[in-house]
Every structure is written in structure tokens, then in C-alpha cells.
Design a binder for these strands. Structure first.
Lengths: 160, 160
DNA sequence: TTATTATTGCAACTTTATTGCAATAATGGG
DNA sequence: CCCATTATTGCAATAAAGTTGCAATAATAA
């Protein structure tokens, strides 16, 4: 965590604080991964997190998976399942408190959080089924995919 | 299609009709896969479809993938993305007309359709984003997982 | 029946994610 | 400040879901 002293990246400090607050060990992978999520403007896939980590961080692929899972378990990050069978994560700090909806681009897979909470309709479940939470996802085209449909078709590999 | 003459399985006849109605070629894989979906009481994964196909059908794994995609493209089946990054399919005939909500068990992954249509709230999207459809999914425990939580944790491998 | 070409089956491959285990390093106690 | 304990990490191997290329097969039209 050598950069934290006079850090040009406030997110690293913020990440350190958040990790420390859990009471668990504070490690470089945890801090760096969380910092990447804090810096991101949208939900990131495992691959995107890996790509955004500074090479100096030298965090193993598998460790990223484990850290993302750990962050999720501690409530420091949210895990979102998209249509393209790829997990996406965003820092919990970014997710607006309480339940909220998601938007996913059906072209590139980009996921963002929407402010509005679903006006929970009283859905009737079969007998014995126990509801926990309601997820509302708007599918459509993001601003980058809407005009000429540039066909990205992978896991949000936009330049943005 | 040998069974179709005096079929003890009305679903095969129904499947044949549906496939024929598309105008495309009527093949054993298409009919058999659709029949399996019609027989199912819930959305099935590729693996589940494979398991339920009679051995006599001898349909290749890859062909099942392609047929499921084909059925979806023709509107004969619906494709649902779950939390466990596995596609599930159900016969369109089962899906209630129009938009409807889904329920997914967070323990075993089971997916069923719910009657109620989401009372579409006016979600506000960022500028340039184009909505296509809204998906509403209730997460919770299905009747089989609710009491003692028997921990299935795979892709709906219940005995039902 | 035969020709045409949509489908299928097979094998290899890709992507995403998970598991086992020895090596490493964060923290608490002395 | 150093050491011991044990949570984490890194590496290699494996798993699961799905895709691709292409020759062989089999629906349909003529």
C-alpha cells in the first residue's frame, strides 16, 4: 500500500478505510480491487477489473475472483448477473442505498444502476414460495450502441 | 418422428405442428427438444433438456444448443438469464402472452413464470439510452428449498 | 428419384469461473 | 522489534457452459 501515504488516488485511501472497517486483514489485492471499483463509473466484469488494475499491483486472476466475492460478502460491492452470463460488480458506495433498478445494454452488455426503486407490485407466488427481493432490469441499448449499432458484442469493451 | 403416428405423447404432435407452422424444415431434434419443453413444468437448462430427451432421440449436445436458439428466434421458446449464468428455456406456449415476471430460487436456481405483468414504472434512463423491455424477477426460495434448505446449489436438480 | 442445401454430428476450442494446495504475508503476543 | 499463527495469495489444474469449423446427413422441391 505504498501509494496510500501521499496518494494521488483518493479511491485507494477510501478503499483502505472500507477494508479496515470490516475488521478483516487489509491486503493489497482487496484494496486495489475495491479502488478500481470505486473509480469505475459502471459495473465492471472480472476481466475489466483485471485490465484496470495497475500492473504494479500484480494481483492474480484467481485472487481477483476471490476478492470480488469477498467484497460482495462483506457488502462492499454488489454482484450483478447479466444476460451474457458474466458477473459484474460495482462498489456498494456507488449503488444508491436501498433497492434500485439496473439497465443492461443488450448489445455490449454494459450495466449501470438506475436511481429509481421499483414500485414493488404485489406479485403472487405459488404456495410455499418465499420471496426475498425483487429485481428490475431494463434491457435496451446504451448510448454507445444506439445509433449505428457498432456491434461490440462482448463484455462491454467500449473505449469509455 | 416415428412416435408421432399413434403417439402416447401429445406434446410431440403439438411440437410437430408448431415446427411445421414455421415453414422451416421439420427435424427430429427440433421436434424432440420442443416436446421436452412443452412437457416441462418450468424453464429448463440446456443440460436438463439433454437429460430429458429419450436416449432414442440421439440428439447431439451442440444440436440442442442450436435448436434452443432456433426455437427462441422463431418465438417458439423463451430464453431466460438467471443468477447462475445459465440460460433457461421454456416453451412459448407456457409463457403467458405478453410481458410477465419471473421467479428464481436463489438456492437451486429454479425458474418459473409468474402471471402478473410488471406495473411498468417510468424509469428514467441517462440521455441517449434506449429502453427495449423491462424484466422483473423475484428472487427467493422455491417450495422445495424453503423449509430445511436442503442445499442443492447447482442448476435445479430437484427430483420433481 | 435425384439434386439442393438446410441441419446435424463430431471434435476441438473459448470463456468464465472454481478448486487444491503449497507459499506468502498480515496481524497479535511476547 | 521479532516470531508464531493462520488468513490470503499465487499457481496449476479442472470444471461448466457455450461456440466454431467443417464434413456427413437428411428434408424438401423438382
Amino acid at each position: 500500500m505504498s501509494q496510500s501515504a501521499n496518494s494521488p488516488q483518493p479511491n485507494i485511501d477510501q478503499a483502505e478505510d472500507a477494508v479496515r472497517a470490516t475488521g478483516a486483514r487489509m491486503t493489497r489485492p482487496r484494496v486495489m480491487v475495491l479502488a478500481v471499483l470505486l473509480e469505475a463509473e459502471r459495473a465492471l466484469t472480472h476481466t475489466e477489473v483485471e485490465a484496470r488494475l495497475p500492473r504494479a499491483a500484480e494481483v492474480d486472476r484467481v485472487t481477483i475472483y476471490r476478492v470480488l466475492e469477498w467484497l460482495t460478502a462483506r457488502g462492499l460491492a454488489h454482484k450483478i448477473a447479466g444476460d451474457d452470463r458474466v458477473w459484474r460488480f460495482n462498489a456498494a458506495a456507488h449503488a444508491h442505498a436501498g433497492p434500485h433498478a439496473h439497465f443492461q445494454c443488450s448489445d455490449c452488455g454494459e450495466v449501470i444502476c438506475l436511481q429509481e426503486a421499483p414500485a414493488r407490485p404485489a406479485l403472487k407466488l405459488p404456495a410455499g414460495y418465499q420471496p426475498q427481493r425483487v429485481e428490475l432490469t431494463v434491457k435496451g441499448l446504451c448510448a454507445h450502441c444506439v445509433p449505428a449499432k457498432p456491434r461490440a458484442r462482448a463484455a462491454a469493451r467500449h473505449s469509455h
